[in-house]
Design a binder for these strands. Structure first.
Lengths: 203, 203
DNA sequence: ATACAATGTTTGACAATCAAAACATTAAGA
DNA sequence: TCTTAATGTTTTGATTGTCAAACATTGTAT
C-alpha cells in the first residue's frame, strides 16, 4: 500500500503543506512557493505529482489539503526533521536557524530505526540524572576548552546530591516526558514523539 | 579558491575514489562503478566532471588518483561520514552496515560547525566519567524498557567510585583521545578527528 | 457587469543524473 | 603479431526538478 521512497523534493513539499495547513487550514501555491523558495510553476508540477500519488487533495486552481495518507507521511517527515533539529539544538547546542536548515536537508535519508533511537537518546539525556541540562553545560565547557574541566569527582558528587535531594522532596521516582508508546520490532519499546514545540521551520 | 558546493553525487564519487586509492593506490572505473553500484558510463561522466574541477588526475582509459585539492575535499567528506557513522554505532548502538549506509546518505548536508560539534560530543561521551561505555549500556537498557531503571542513586554512586579509583591508581588525571587541535571560529578550540577506525564503507 | 490585480498554469528550455547498448581501447596469451 | 576478453567510452534516451515567460483563471472593487 505504502509508496515507499518519495523523493526528497516531494517530501519537502509535503512537509511545507503540512505546516501551512496547520496554520491556515489550506495551502495555496503561493505560500508553498514562498516557503520553499521555489517558483510557482515548480509547485504546480509537484502538486500534480503528489495528487497522482493520492497524498494531497488538489485540483487546478484549487487549494491544497493533505489526504490521510499524505498526512501520515508528512508527519513522518516532520518527526524526522524535529528529531534532528532538537538534537542539534538541545544537545549539540547549535543555534536554531542553522539546526533547522540542516535538519531539513538531512531528514530525508533517515530510516525509522535511527530516528526512534535518536529521539530516545535525547529523552534519555533529559531524564538520566547523570546527564541533564547541567551536564550539557559541562559539554559546552568542554567545547570551549577541552582541558579546563578536571574536577570530575566533585562534579559527580554534586550530581549525586541533586538526585538524593530530588528523591527526598519529590515523591515520584522519575517523570517521563510525554511520549506515545508503540510496539517496536523485536518487542522493544520505542518512543514516538510526534510533534515537538514550535519554532522556525525551513520547510 | 575552494569549489564550494560539490553535488552529493560528486562527493560520493570522490569518497569512493579516496577509499579505493587507499587500498589499491589507483582507482579504476570498474571499481568505482561496483562500489557505488552505478553503471560504468555514469562513472566516466563523473570522472570527466571531477577532472574538470581539478579534483582528480584522469585521462581517458587511464587510472584515477586524487589531486591534493581532491584529497582535501574527499577527506572532508570522509570525516563527515565517519562522524555520523561513529555516532550511530557507538552512541545510538545502531549496527554498522545500516549506520554506514545512512551516514553515506546524510553526510552531504552537514556543515562543518555541526560535524565538529558532533565529533566533540562523541569524544565527550567517551571522556566524561558521568557518561562512558557503562552509561551507554544504561541507555540501551532504557531503550529496552524505559521504566526499568530507577536506581539512579546507586548508579551515580558507582560512577563516583569508579572515578575515585581511577584517580587513585592512574596518576594521570584524564587522558584525551588522539585529536588534532586547531583554532575554530570565535576563538574556540574544536576537535578535528580526521579518520577513525576502519570498517565497511558504502562509498 | 467588467476590469484589474492576484494567483495559478502551461510551455519550453535547461541541468543533473543515470542506464543501456553500441563502440573503442587496452593488455595478455597463443 | 593477432585475437580476444576485459575494460572504458560514447551516444542516446529517460527521469527529475528547476526557472522564466506567456497565458489563463479567479475574485473583488467599482
Amino acid at each position: 500500500m505504502d509508496d515507499l521512497s518519495l523523493s526528497a523534493s516531494m517530501e519537502d513539499y509535503l512537509e511545507a503543506i503540512f505546516h501551512i495547513v496547520l496554520e491556515s487550514q489550506v495551502a495555496r501555491v503561493k505560500d508553498i512557493a514562498s516557503r520553499l523558495k521555489v517558483h510557482k510553476s515548480s509547485v504546480t508540477a509537484a502538486l500534480r505529482n503528489l495528487a497522482e500519488h493520492k497524498l494531497i487533495n488538489y485540483a487546478p486552481y484549487d487549494v491544497v489539503t493533505l489526504t490521510p495518507q499524505g498526512a501520515r507521511i508528512a508527519q513522518d517527515v516532520v518527526r524526522r526533521h524535529e528529531a534532528l533539529r532538537d538534537f542539534f539544538v538541545q544537545v549539540l547546542t547549535i543555534d536554531e536557524p542553522l539546526a533547522d536548515e540542516v535538519a531539513c536537508r538531512m531528514e530525508h535519508a533517515m530510516p525509522r530505526t535511527i530516528v526512534d533511537r535518536l529521539i530516545l537518546f535525547s529523552e534519555f539525556l533529559e531524564i538520566c540524572p547523570r546527564a541533564g541540562k547541567k551536564w550539557i553545560r559541562g559539554f559546552q565547557h568542554f567545547c570551549d576548552d577541552a582541558l579546563a574541566q578536571q574536577k570530575c569527582e566533585r562534579c559527580i558528587s554534586m550530581c549525586l546530591e541533586d538526585v538524593k535531594q530530588k528523591q527526598a522532596q519529590g515523591g515520584a521516582k522519575m517523570t517521563l516526558p510525554l511520549r506515545e508508546m508503540k510496539p517496536g520490532q523485536k518487542g522493544k519499546i520505542l518512543a514516538v514523539k510526534t510533534t515537538g514545540e514550535l519554532g522556525k521551520r525551513s520547510a
